[in-house]
Amino acid sequence: MEITVTINGTAHTADVEPRTLLVQFIRENVGLTGTNIGCDTSSCGACSIHLDGEAVKSCTVLAVQADGAAVTTIEGMAAADGTLHPMQAAFMENHGLQCGYCTPGMVMAATSLLAENPSPTEEEVRIGLEGNLCRCTGYHNIVKAVMACAES
């Protein structure tokens, strides 16, 4: 089936099998590998992207469901001149990552969270990121980064 998905502002048209997952389409058809596959069972959140502005887990969305939609991936967050998105900068400044595997999904989930709740409490950040697992940091610095981004 032919689908067109706009990813980070560029329209991508491809003929895909209906069973193609959105994360596969992003990584394999479009070649954007910043979106990671972790658990592949919609638990870990590593594959989080924005679909029409909201965080979703792209391992549990079929590419055909995203036909006509606008997707933002981690590659679409920084400005064209390389200036980091404020959330990316906050993760860097607050040491919100170690191995980095969960980071793209964390950044996408955290920006979606702040779009819905611009001034969250620390508890709201922790609950808001419950769909994203990190095995390095113990979450403390991730939460600190999101709080810092919300305050800036």
């Binding site: 679909l51 965080a55 979703v56 887990k57 549990t60 969305v61 989930a109 979606s112 769909g131």
Partner: peptide, 9 residues
Amino acid sequence: VGDPQVRHR
């Protein structure tokens, strides 16, 4: 239900 990403879909 689930988490925010799940609840968006």
